[in-house]
Structure formats: C-alpha cells, structure tokens
Amino acid sequence: MIQAANPDVILLTASMDENTLKMIESLEELGINWIGMNVNMENDPRGRLEWVKYVGAILDKEEEAEEFFERELKKIEEIENSTLESDGVKPKVSYVRITDDGYTVKNQGDYSVKMLELAGGDYIFKDLNPGKDGTLKISAEEFYKAAEDADIIIYENMGAFVGTMEEFLEKGDHLSGIKAVKEGRVWVTKRNYWQSADKAADMIKELRDIFTTPHGELEETEHYLLAK
C-alpha cells in the first residue's frame, strides 16, 4: 500500500525497537526513502513543537515553519507567565485511561505532564518515574489512593468513547468516591486529542482555562469535554 502511494519520502516516527528496524529494512528493500522523526521521544511540548522546523526544512518551507514555531512558543510563554504570576492554589490534576487490565497514568517526565504544569496544574503522580516519559499501568487501588482528593481528572479517551459521567463511573464503582467525581470535574479528551503536537499551545491554554474558570462556566474546549 505504501509503495502504491509512491511517496517521495516517509517521515518515520518511531523508536529503535525490533519492529521499527524491520520496518526500516522493508522500506529500504522497496527503495522507499525515509527520514527519522523522533517527536515521540520529546518530554516537553515545546520540543515536540520544534520538530515543525525539521519538517519545514524537508519541505523547503523553513521560514513558515520558523514563524509558526515562534508564534506558538510565544503563546506558551504567555500562558506560563500568567501561571507564574497567579498566586492561587494549584489544582491537583490526574490524567488517566482505564482499561480492563488497569489504570494507565503518565510518568512524571511525560510531555503531557509538562503541559499540565505549564497550565498551572499540580500533577498528582509527580513521584512516578521522575524524568521518564510515557505511561505506566497501575492498579485500581494505587490510582484511587492518589486520586481520592484530586480536584480534576482528565480521562484520556482510547477505545470505547467515554463522554459522560455515567460512562466514566462504569469503569469502576470506587471512582464515585473521588473528589473530582463528586464535584463533577471530570474532563474527557475528544477524538482530536491524540497526535496534536502542533496544537500544544492551544491545548495548554485550554487546560489553563479548565483550571481557572469557575466550575460550571466552561463545559467544552476544542480538545476537552466536561463529563456530565
């Protein structure tokens, strides 16, 4: 299928695992050009964003890419400054994705935790694998113990879409005991949430709005939805 599409070059986002090496071997056998693009290994949203310059260089659109990057970076700086100037109490926030075999939460070093912190949130699993990116699957108990007094839960949708509080609670009876659930502050990610490295600034701004807007006044942003 890739060969039929006859691409000039493939931007390969992957790590150096066995599958990737096999894929590279196949691409080379087929004579398809590829260039590595390890955006997934960045642990800061600004680092992810910067890859636009790399793509710009490949597509001979360096100026546009540079302009885009600087504009987005400025937006993030503005949010960061407003967060730093704010003297309010930081809301305790958790990312989570619940599947049949456990609770997937972000390691402390993941880029999305950095986004949350730039937006003024206090990540409840900040002691979890410090400096390491990616996710960790933990038990229901571990999650409940840490999230019991979380102010806001961000449910990362993958699999059957969870859009309402009822659907969220179907994931486990015990979840009703969490403060964010009792106060109706569970947000779910929309379908356009994943693979939006270029939207980092907008997403951080949305998180900032979620954290600072009085409860009940904001129900939806471009990437997040309040579970009701």
Partner: peptide, 21 residues
Amino acid sequence: NEHEIAALVSWSMGSFSGIGW
C-alpha cells in the same frame, strides 16, 4: 482502528481488575 485495538488488547491480557458488582 487504534482505539478498538486498545480495548481488545487490554481485555486479552486477562485481569480481575475493575470487575464490578
């Protein structure tokens, strides 16, 4: 799609976690 795959893979792992009343 990747969302459906995630649901199937997590179920395939086998677990007593999250089983409700």
